[in-house]
């Protein structure tokens, strides 16, 4: 009997250790918006204090390019947040808003209707941005299931388990993948502002890696 108990403890300890190591590995490799200097809306949401946001703007790049939460704060004292992801489709809008509502209680939600007619512009990277940037939960699971409801060709397990997509990031790891940084809270939505009639983005000065870590 003693032997069985010992083996059961060893088995549980091993399983626990294995799961911990896999989680740590996943946290390093997990999808991050490297083309957006590691500042995705979802990442910023997770680093926002609970019940801080009064107004939310949900939508695609139109939102983060055109709506400037800092302006609302400075001019009207409204705490707002751009829950925006490049190529955000309507399914992703719904589930990303649900993710936000887990920790925030906004009084007003504005939704960019572009998502109703968009499939993420068919860009593969936008799928990843929308589908695997949330923390794994029943919400993210339902998000993936709903997104691929009509799609019989895509293996949704890749999106549910995520490792099949993110594991090749070992080729591009940087310090930011290993350190628990806090995304700059003042850059939300104000970083890239398209001017009317301008095709190209005219970004303001980007934060350096060191300032983001501070």
């Amino acid at each position: 009997m003693n032997n069985i108990v010992k083996k059961a403890i060893a088995f549980c300890a091993f399983t626990g250790l294995l799961i911990t190591v896999i989680c740590v590995t996943y946290n390093i490799l997990r999808w991050k918006d490297t083309t957006g200097e590691y500042r995705s809306s979802v990442e910023q949401l997770y680093n926002t204090e609970d019940n801080l946001i009064d107004v939310v703007f949900v939508g695609s790049s139109h939102v983060y390019c055109d709506i400037y939460p800092c302006f609302l704060w400075e001019k009207a004292g409204i705490s707002s947040f751009d829950m925006s992801v490049a190529g955000q489709d309507k399914v992703s809008s719904y589930y990303e808003l649900k993710e936000l509502l887990k920790t925030q209680s906004p009084k007003v939600v504005f939704v960019d209707l572009y998502g109703l007619f968009s499939d993420g512009n068919g860009i593969e990277g936008n799928r990843y941005r929308n589908l695997i940037s949330m923390k794994p939960s029943s919400n993210s699971y339902n998000h993936v299931k709903e997104f691929f409801k009509e799609d019989k060709e895509t293996d949704i397990n890749d999106y549910l388990f995520r490792f099949p997509i993110v594991h090749t990031r070992y080729k591009e790891l940087t310090r930011l993948d290993f350190e628990d940084y806090i995304p700059n809270s003042f850059l939300r939505g104000e970083e890239i502002i398209f001017t009317v009639g301008s095709a190209a983005a005219s970004p303001t000065a980007h934060d350096t890696e060191s300032s983001m870590l501070s």
Binding site: L18, V21, I22, L29, F163, H167, T168, Y170
Partner: peptide, 11 residues
């Protein structure tokens, strides 16, 4: 497990 998950050819 970690080596396979990270460096394995899959996905």
């Amino acid at each position: 497990v970690v080596i396979i998950l990270v460096y394995g050819e899959y996905g």
